[in-house]
């Protein structure tokens, strides 16, 4: 099948690519852009490991074709720690032991970074519901919930 030109705007950098239309965004980000923090866990939209932000909103990179992304701004986990400093959520995940094998971590960080902006003072039930789109096989979620709470508190204190 014929390749088509597409320019991906990822983390503020532009990547001019030539891709088959069927190429999944997750594969293009990993292989063409070298952004291997985008993890592929199910290619069915369930596990959440490949979640990135498209124009600021979380999306499953495995359910989008790269060719669709011309003109959209994509952010991956590689863009979250600015100037080398962990974001409050990343720092809170570190302090609460909110990750073990780390494979699900990038995706859930992307979702919760966006979610915390809309939900600055969430309770545990809301956090758990928001996290339910991310499968973690290691932590039992509890430490992730604690980290999201902590990150929200830090963000509120800074505001």
């Amino acid at each position: 099948m014929k390749r088509v030109p597409v320019t991906l705007d990822v983390n503020g950098e532009s990547h001019a690519l030539s891709l088959e239309p069927r190429r999944l965004l997750s594969d293009a980000l990993r292989e063409e852009c070298g952004l291997t923090g985008v993890h592929v866990g199910c290619e069915n939209g369930v596990c959440g490991a490949c979640t990135v932000l498209i124009d600021g909103a979380p999306a499953r990179a495995c359910l989008i074709f790269a060719v669709q992304m011309q003109g959209h701004a994509i952010a991956t986990i590689e863009s979250v720690a600015r100037g080398g400093a962990l974001s409050p959520l990343q720092q809170a995940l570190h302090e609460e032991h909110g990750l073990q094998c780390g494979f699900c971590t990038p995706g859930l960080v992307m979702t919760m970074e966006a979610w915390l902006k809309d939900n600055p003072d969430p309770d545990e039930t809301a956090i758990r519901a928001a996290l339910s789109g991310h499968l973690c096989r290691c932590t039992g979620y509890q430490s992730i919930v604690a980290a999201v709470k902590r990150a929200a508190r830090i963000a509120r204190e800074r505001a």
Binding site: T36, H39, V40, L99, G102, F103
Partner: peptide
């Protein structure tokens, strides 16, 4: 002690097989 390995995983710099 907080984990020494966390930073690379939190920033997408882990090196898993497919990377």
């Amino acid at each position: 002690l907080l984990r020494f390995e966390d930073r690379r995983f939190l920033t997408g710099q882990g090196a898993y097989l497919d990377d």
